[in-house]
């Protein structure tokens, strides 16, 4: 390294060290400004962030899945009954099976493979 290089290096180092010594502690006023910005940004986003999604009943969900009242209106009764059987509880189906058998003594659940076997000869 030449003498000039050394002097240049000293010049650079001294200038940089002067700048490095500049530390700045944020005061309360700056912190307040920064927090005011943070609060403002939260407030801007709040309506979007906290709006809950409306809860819908099971019937409303089913209706929506079928395409709304317009679509349901064009379905036949049998179609709607079939859909209902698909979602209803077994207790309801058992009652239905009794009504169809025409008597009090026949109770054949409509759920399960054995159902059709049990009905043979009775209907």
């Amino acid at each position: 390294m030449t003498m000039t290089d050394e002097r240049d290096e000293d010049l650079f180092r001294a200038t940089v060290e002067t700048a490095r010594r500049r530390t700045a502690e944020p005061d309360d006023a700056l912190l307040d400004r920064v927090m005011a910005d943070a609060d403002r940004e939260l407030a801007i986003r709040a309506p979007r962030a906290v709006t809950p999604r409306a809860r819908r009943s099971a019937a409303a969900v089913l209706l929506a899945a079928l395409g709304g009242w317009g679509a349901v209106g064009s379905m036949t009764t049998a179609t709607i009954l079939g859909i209902w059987i698909g979602v209803a509880q077994p207790d309801g189906l058992n009652a239905l099976s009794q009504a169809w058998s025409g008597g009090d003594t026949v109770e054949v659940p409509l759920t399960g493979v054995e159902t059709l076997v049990g009905l043979e000869g009775l209907l």
């Binding site: 700048a19 500049r22 700045a24 502690e25 920064v34 939260l42 709040a46 962030a49 906290v50």
Partner: peptide, 27 residues
């Protein structure tokens, strides 16, 4: 946490990061 609405998280972040941010800008 701040993005979820926790204001205290912003205050801690500010206290933690501001000295460095301000110092860099000042230098």
């Amino acid at each position: 946490a701040y993005a979820r609405g926790e204001r205290d998280a912003a205050r801690i972040l500010s206290r933690r990061l501001l000295p460095r941010v301000l110092g860099q800008a000042h230098r």
